[in-house]
Design a protein around this nucleic acid. Structure first.
Length: 245
DNA sequence: TGCCATGTTAAACT
DNA sequence: GAGTTTAACATGGC
């Protein structure tokens, strides 16, 4: 579930707790629950696939991995599987099957905020410079590199490559500049389509290639292969996605 | 019912 | 020590 756009949805869902004081923290996360108690939420941010709840002295980092979820107001799952629950005077936030860590310092310098495809700070020129340093990398791996395209996950990867007609095994250094520009642009553009469709519960309906059997453009069979060093499930059309290598 | 997946990290290897 | 492979975690849908 949680690629970058889903994190934006999570962030919006919990944003109303900004300024509120944590009365109690509980759950099986291996962190100090006492540390959180009494602290007010200063800010709630996202970077790629991570959510940050910034308190007065501490920042909670939540990574949803593959199966993470979050609910507001009521505990929806058994107490023993609760990873982290933050209880406020009015309402609560519950996290399940997430990775939860605490940071004491500022997170401003911890991440490249211009790498987040969902952020106003997204900087495509910077992404391009990073790509230039890795000409031998396959595009299917490059798109999943969180240092370059923070927030892009496997679905977005597949859809972006299909939409820009680039074969997943293409090498970054061999992709013509105009095509690379298109790929970088589409990484952000499709992520926002993803966000809108996800919000409307119609995301799957709009997949052009992910999990598909037939290419919508040329009717050739869609190929499913575990590509790149990431060996993630990749769907593509051999006929209309060009391999640059 | 077993398998698989929108992800990452740490341990175990060469 | 580096780089690479494997294992582990955890949940829901088909």
């Amino acid at each position: 579930m949680p690629e970058g756009p889903s994190l934006v949805i999570f962030r919006e869902a919990v944003s109303s707790f900004t300024g509120k004081k944590i009365l109690e923290a509980r759950g099986n996360a291996k962190i100090s629950m006492e540390r959180l108690q009494g602290q007010k939420i200063r800010d709630i941010r996202t970077w790629g696939k991570q959510l940050f709840i910034c308190l007065q002295k501490t920042t909670i980092r939540v990574h949803f991995l593959l199966f993470g979820s979050c609910s507001i107001g009521e505990q929806t799952k058994p107490a023993r599987s609760l990873r982290l629950g933050l209880i406020f005077s009015k309402g609560a936030i519950y996290f399940y099957s997430c990775s939860v860590k605490l940071t004491e310092g500022s997170i401003d310098t911890l991440y490249d905020w211009e790498a987040d495809v969902m952020s106003d700070k997204w900087n495509p020129a910077r992404a391009r410079k990073k790509l230039k340093l890795k000409p031998q990398t396959k595009v299917c791996d490059a798109l999943l590199d969180q240092e370059i395209f923070s927030g892009v996950g496997n679905i977005i990867k597949n859809e972006v490559l299909y939409r820009t007609r680039i074969h997943p095994d293409s090498l970054v250094g061999k992709v013509p500049p105009a095509r690379l520009t298109a790929m970088i642009r589409e990484a952000r553009n499709y992520s926002f389509d993803f966000l809108q469709w996800k919000k409307a519960f119609v995301l799957k309906k709009h997949w052009l290639v992910h999990t598909k059997k037939i290419c919508q453009r040329c009717e050739f069979p869609v190929i499913k292969k575990y590509c790149g060093s990431t060996r993630r499930r990749t769907f593509y059309c051999d006929n209309c996605q060009v391999k640059y290598k």
